Simulated assay, not measured.
Amino acid sequence: MSKQTGIILLSGKWKDRVGYYRRNKKGKKEWWWRRAPENVQRTAATKRAATDFGTASKCSRMVRHALRPWLQYYGYHFDHNRLNKAFINVIKADKDHNTGFKVPTHHHMQSLCGFNFNSSKIIHEYLTGAPIITSDQDNTTAILLPGIHLRNTTTNKGVTHVTVKAIALPFDYRQNTVTPLVSETITIKRSDIHQAITLTLPASKEQTLILLEIQCGYEINNSIEISADKQTAAIDIIAVLPAVKPEKIGKIYRNRTPQLYIVPTCCQPVSNHQRRQITSLYPLKE
Score class of each variant (00 low, 15 high):
residue 1 M to H: 11
residue 7 I to R: 09
residue 7 I to Q: 06
residue 10 L to F: 11
residue 11 S to F: 03
residue 17 R to G: 07
residue 31 W to D: 10
residue 32 W to P: 04
residue 36 A to H: 06
residue 46 T to I: 05
residue 53 F to P: 00
residue 53 F to T: 02
residue 58 K to P: 04
residue 58 K to Y: 03
residue 62 M to V: 07
residue 70 W to Q: 14
residue 73 Y to H: 06
residue 75 G to A: 02
residue 77 H to P: 00
residue 78 F to Y: 05
residue 84 N to A: 05
residue 84 N to L: 10
residue 84 N to W: 07
residue 94 D to T: 03
residue 95 K to D: 13
residue 96 D to S: 15
residue 98 N to G: 12
residue 103 V to A: 04
residue 105 T to E: 13
residue 108 H to N: 13
residue 117 F to D: 13
residue 117 F to R: 10
residue 118 N to P: 05
residue 120 S to N: 08
residue 121 K to A: 00
residue 123 I to Q: 03
residue 129 G to D: 15
residue 140 T to F: 14
residue 145 L to A: 08
residue 145 L to F: 12
residue 146 P to C: 08
residue 150 L to Y: 14
residue 153 T to K: 11
residue 158 G to C: 04
residue 165 K to N: 02
residue 166 A to P: 07
residue 169 L to G: 10
residue 174 R to A: 03
residue 175 Q to K: 12
residue 177 T to E: 14
residue 181 L to S: 14
residue 184 E to A: 01
residue 190 R to V: 07
residue 191 S to G: 00
residue 195 Q to M: 10
residue 197 I to Y: 05
residue 202 P to A: 04
residue 203 A to F: 06
residue 205 K to H: 14
residue 209 L to C: 03
residue 213 E to K: 04
residue 219 E to V: 09
residue 220 I to M: 11
residue 228 A to C: 00
residue 242 P to W: 14
residue 251 K to Y: 15
residue 254 R to W: 02
residue 255 N to K: 15
residue 259 Q to T: 02
residue 259 Q to I: 04
residue 266 C to T: 15
residue 270 V to Y: 00
residue 271 S to N: 08
residue 273 H to C: 00
residue 276 R to K: 15
residue 281 L to K: 15
